[in-house]
Design a protein around this nucleic acid. Structure first.
Lengths: 226, 226
DNA sequence: GTCTATATCATGATAGAC
DNA sequence: GTCTATCATGATATAGAC
């Protein structure tokens, strides 16, 4: 069957990506996936072996590119800087901006994958978190080091916490296209949806950099050194 | 059976709260819940009617108090201010600080409930998001209005976005006690776990306020007014 | 109110014909 | 590679004895 628009494996991945995004891993059945993909139920196990392996492949297909791109961008920036420390805002843009700009790239999953990723970082399933932690480790370490150098006066623990907070804010921003629409119930009248993504990036960047560069917290009764 | 430590309903709620936190709504079966609670399988349907109603009751038990407390605190602050606008940091603390301080209050669910809440805000299940949106609406509207007054020079849409980002950062901070530990893989050597919560609050507050008060974003090719 | 037993259905996975 | 048919399991929910 050469006439089929996409290979069976790709069609399964596309359907799984969308359905996992919409209903979560546990909330999506293989029957739904194969039904939407228009393939036979047995095809998932034939092509991927199991539902878990399918989930991993859904992520690997996108994350391989994303993480390589993040590495490439950071390497390039450091090369241009000639040993000078980078500005924190440049590092933040290289990490989060590269991610957010995937949203406009349909052939790399677009908003669907971004929302899936945003949701999955808090997904309860153990194997998914372990898998993502492994996939991300090299890149995270690299960016943490870059931030340590860019902010030598800030304790490393604070930087790591703030990286954590930035990840959270970003995940929500992308996962919440409809999730938190409900919670916040905003009526942003002045803009249409085509503008929304273009504006989200600078909006989020301002917020993230403001948070990253905020005055350090004062601990009340902390055991400062011991 | 008066001798039982807790009523059947409460024991089910406690078990469900912990298990939904650990494995998600779809990932938790009623057999697990009743097993951990030490009650019969049929007890859930007798006391709560269905798994969905149980989930709602798990949240209502905690959110009723939280949201009343948030309203009470904000009312009190505004009363004291005598019509003067509140400082943004005071409002942020009333909303997020009140939430975070629940973590230390075991009889109000403590960290378990906080982590459940953090995860659930990105939970895919439709009915949960709809339920939370309804439960939160009054409080969210009240706090948004307070922030609008506190920051009259900032466009309302920006404030709502930044509220959104703050929710995300906070959710992660609490949901991720072990979730993002994996992703960030930090080694915070200098503090023990008893300090962690005491320090999380000022850490997160600094970040949130830095983000909320950051310089406004510049939009590249935006249709500013139309 | 609490239990046992069970109805009814959906799930992930696989065997084996084509 | 793709299909049908089916297995074994586990899910939510309920009927009815105690």
């Amino acid at each position: 069957m050469e006439a089929r628009a996409l290979e069976t494996g790709e069609r399964i991945l596309d359907a799984a990506e969308r359905l996992f995004m919409a209903h979560g891993y546990e909330g999506t059945s293989m029957r739904q996936i194969t039904g939407e993909a228009g393939v036979n139920l047995a095809a998932v196990n034939y092509h991927f072996g199991s539902k878990e392996s399918l989930m991993q492949e859904v992520f690997r297909r996108r994350l391989d590119w994303l993480n390589e791109e993040r590495m490439r961008v950071l390497n390039e920036l450091e090369r241009e800087a000639n040993g000078e420390p980078l500005k924190p805002s440049v590092i933040v843009d290289a990490f989060f901006g590269t991610l957010l700009r995937m949203a406009g790239d349909e052939k790399r999953g677009g908003m669907t994958f971004l929302r899936l990723l945003g949701r999955t970082l808090t997904e309860p399933s153990e194997f998914i978190r372990a898998f993502l932690a492994h996939e991300y480790k090299t890149v995270m370490d690299r960016y943490k080091e870059a931030l340590f150098k860019a902010l030598p006066e800030v304790p490393k623990a604070e930087i790591v916490w703030r990286f954590h907070f930035m990840l959270g804010a970003t995940s929500y921003a992308i996962a919440g296209t409809d999730a938190l629409r409900l919670v916040t119930d905003w009526q942003i009248e002045e803009e249409d949806s085509t503008d929304r993504l273009d504006r989200l990036v600078p909006r989020l960047m301002s917020f993230l950099i403001g948070g990253l560069r905020a005055p350090l917290p004062q601990f009340e009764n902390a055991t400062v050194e011991h």
